[in-house]
């Protein structure tokens, strides 16, 4: 399954390393058409900036968690993601009857599948985050400590409970969260993709 990364992988690396020099290249070279797409479709430059930033943060999270390997040019992938994110945003705002102004660009299968992978990642990420917030305070605290501190011995010490109790309540909280996710309609939606 080891795929050779596209040379534009450097942009993914830059997100991971917070390399502002390379990141500024992204803004310099790739954002103009996104901004005009948003502006041509009921948005302004603030909207464009938000869409661009959220997209980049999502790519960052995907790269952190899943070792995202780019197999197509960054530009095309990034544009596709921003474009769809903006269209979704418009839907949320109730702009259903907008005429979408866009130049016709051909999208390769590779770009399509890269973008789709990121979109599913994002949906899942958002779902997990929102369900996490539905947990009780105790569970949120428990999991927060468990994932930040790593060693469960330390977590137990930190929370002032026994190691056995910490382990047990961590897996119980995770169990609750699992059920919250499983019973959500968003989960069914993601599963269907």
């Amino acid at each position: 399954m080891e795929q050779k990364p596209h040379e534009d992988q450097l942009y993914i690396e830059a997100l991971l390393k917070n390399d502002s020099k390379v990141l500024s290249e992204i803004y310099k070279s790739f954002t103009r058409k996104i901004v005009s797409f948003v502006k041509n479709n009921n948005g302004n430059s603030d909207d464009a900036q938000d869409i661009i930033q959220e997209t980049l943060v999502t790519i960052y999270h995907q790269a952190k968690e899943k070792n995202l390997v780019l197999t197509c040019p960054f530009d095309a992938y990034f544009f596709l993601l921003c474009k769809r994110k903006w269209l979704n945003e418009l839907k949320k705002r109730g702009h259903n009857r907008v005429t979408i102004v866009e130049e016709i660009t051909s999208v390769t299968e590779e770009q399509e599948s890269m973008a789709e992978e990121t979109e599913i990642f994002e949906l899942q990420h958002q779902l997990f985050e929102s369900k996490f917030k539905e947990l009780g305070k105790k569970c949120q605290e428990m999991l927060n400590a468990a994932f930040k501190i790593k060693s469960m011995e330390e977590v137990a010490k930190f929370l002032g409970v026994s190691y056995g109790y910490a382990r047990k309540s961590k897996s119980e909280c995770m169990g609750k969260l699992t059920q919250l996710v499983k019973n959500s309609k968003e989960y069914l939606h993601i599963k269907a993709q």
Partner: peptide
């Protein structure tokens, strides 16, 4: 895996957001 990554990288993600919003206001606005 998701929560681990999220909590471990919380601060790093914030720093990145700061960089991006600076670049955004610089290049876009």
């Amino acid at each position: 895996s998701s929560l681990r990554s999220k909590f471990e990288n919380e601060e790093e993600a914030l720093v990145l957001r700061k960089t991006l919003s600076d670049l955004g206001s610089h290049y876009i606005k």
